[in-house]
Simulated assay, not measured.
Amino acid sequence: MSAFTSLRPSLGLARTAAQASRGFSSSASRSVARMIITGRLAAEPELQATASGQDVLRYAVGTSYGSKDNRQTSWFRVASFLPEGAQRDFIMSLPKGTLVYLEGDASMRTYEDADGKKHSALNIVQRSLEVLSRPPPTEEQ
């Protein structure tokens, strides 16, 4: 029992030192909501310009769950601010129905429409995107 008692004070100091070191960060403190979505592209991604002239790649990903008789689908709108280059061109070339794995930062936005009705929207900004499988070719392609 004396060995246990002699270790206790040193454990307390170690715990205090660990807590103190966790409190330091060189980056600003902020909350982050990260989402991971595995689903299919609703349509081919589109390149649009923002009001400030910055290019934004927009697309939607659909996820489904439930049995065939009671299938539910959720749609997620995604924005990507990739610069011109191979990555952006690759994403723009993906056809509707491509199965993707997406990681992104999420935020909620509330707004009022022209009729005064309040709406909420989930905004997702792409961090990374991986293609899991492409849809089978159709006769049109």
Rank of each mutant, 00 (worst) to 15 (best):
S2E: 15
L7R: 11
A18K: 05
G23E: 13
G23L: 12
S29W: 09
R30A: 14
V32P: 04
A33Y: 06
M35T: 09
I37G: 01
T38E: 14
G39Q: 03
A43D: 14
A43I: 04
P45Q: 02
L47V: 14
T50W: 12
A51S: 10
S52L: 11
S52Y: 07
D55K: 13
V56D: 06
Y59M: 13
T63I: 08
D69H: 09
Q72H: 12
T73R: 12
T73W: 05
W75Y: 08
F76I: 15
V78L: 14
V78H: 02
A79E: 13
F81R: 08
R88L: 10
D89E: 15
M92L: 15
L94N: 05
T98A: 00
L99V: 09
L102A: 00
E103I: 08
D105F: 03
A106M: 14
R109W: 05
Y111D: 11
D113W: 02
D115W: 03
K117F: 01
K117M: 09
K118H: 12
K118C: 05
S120L: 14
S120R: 10
L122M: 15
L122Y: 05
N123H: 12
N123C: 06
I124P: 05
R127T: 14
S128F: 02
L132H: 03
S133K: 09
P135K: 00
P136F: 01
P136C: 01
